[in-house]
């Protein structure tokens, strides 16, 4: 906040009192709440003084001043409410549990926003709160967020809490909006080695030009890591695939048995799903570039997905995110089987 009564060097007790009032939010309707910023409290206190003087004196010029300031407040509230009511909802990217995803999304708006402002948005997703920030100005809306969900799931945010002090920075208007924003949170990928997977690439080096990237797996040679794209945690690193290695690849198929044996903990099931996601990342490419990886098929339970197909890749991600233990064995008969159930 650019202007703050703290700048007036007010005594600490008064600032403490202001902060207490700042924390209060008056319910206007079941969905709307009104709070004050520190300058807003000073504004309202001054306004109350003016009205008291006007009522006492009957001085109509004081009435006029009071009416002007009160209407300034009402107009600001109306504009703020309008902004919150009409704010377009964000399109959230696919998230991964335990991973921080930084969101910078700029959306051009067909009609300009009523006023410039910053809106703080909070939504509950699977028992966690996601915090986003929207900067609106003219024909542009920019979403900024650092999203770090902890739990896997296919969630739908039904309600969003929006709050903003726009346009004057005097009042904080809060609003609950019913929405239906689907949030896809994939599991933490669990690295696992397989015979025809990434492990065989770790040792040898053939060919001199890479043509593709895959996810990093523990044990990969550091010389194959694409260091320019290596940011954040190792699981998000990319490893170069060379043509020679690619030639040896065959169309991969993974069958996932979603049955959870009695007595086994759910964490084992989560591990299994993490392994599936790991496999999909390896064979399906980056989650933002579906279908860019090698040809692969995934069978989860009774559902079949061709990961080379963008739409099916998306559906596969949804299925992985929302997977729950099943009763039936997986469809199909060949390919690599990933299961918690002991073989008969």
């Amino acid at each position: 906040m650019a202007y703050d009564p703290a700048d007036l060097k007010l005594p600490a007790w008064l600032l403490g009192l202001l902060d207490r009032v700042v924390r209060m939010h008056l319910p206007l309707t079941p969905r709307w709440r009104l709070g004050f910023t520190r300058p807003g409290i000073i504004f309202v206190a001054g306004l109350s003084g003016i009205w008291a003087a006007a009522f006492y004196s009957g001085n109509n010029l004081l009435y006029l001043c009071g009416a002007m300031l009160l209407s300034l407040m009402l107009a600001a509230l109306l504009q703020g409410a309008n902004l919150l009511r009409r704010l377009p909802m964000p399109v959230l990217p696919v998230l991964q549990a335990g991973e921080t995803r930084v969101l910078h999304q700029t959306i051009p708006l067909p009609t300009p926003v009523v006023c410039s402002g910053v809106v703080a948005v909070t939504c509950a997703v699977g028992g966690e709160l996601l915090h986003l920030s929207a900067r609106c100005h003219g024909h542009e809306l920019r979403w900024d967020a650092r999203l770090r969900p902890d739990r896997r799931g296919l969630f739908v945010a039904r309600e969003m809490l929006l709050s903003s002090a726009a346009p004057l920075g005097l009042f904080v208007l809060g609003c609950r909006r019913s929405v239906a924003i689907e949030v896809l949170v994939l599991p933490v990928p669990v690295a696992w080695l397989q015979a025809d997977g990434s492990g065989d690439e770790a040792g040898g080096f053939s060919g001199d030009e890479w043509h593709d990237l895959r996810a990093y797996v523990a044990g990969d040679s550091p010389s194959r890591i694409h260091w320019r794209r290596a940011q954040g945690e190792p699981l998000s690193w990319a490893v170069k695939r060379f043509s020679a290695a690619d030639e040896r690849q065959v169309k991969a198929r993974l069958r996932v048995d979603l049955r959870l044996p009695p007595g086994m903990q759910v964490s084992a099931f989560e591990q299994l799903i993490g392994q599936v996601w790991f496999w999909v990342k390896q064979h399906g490419g980056e989650c933002d570039i579906p279908g860019s990886g090698q040809p692969a098929e995934l069978i989860i339970g009774e559902d079949y997905f061709d990961l080379a197909d963008a739409a099916q890749y998306q559906l596969a991600l949804r299925t992985i995110a929302g997977a729950t233990p099943a009763q039936q064995p997986p469809a199909g008969s060949d390919g690599l089987l990933l299961s918690l159930v002991e073989a008969d």
Binding site: N60, Y63, L64, G66, A67, M68, L70, S71, L72, L74, A75, L78
Partner: peptide
Amino acid sequence: LVVALAVALF
């Protein structure tokens, strides 16, 4: 809007 509201309030 401020002016209109001010007149109405007055």
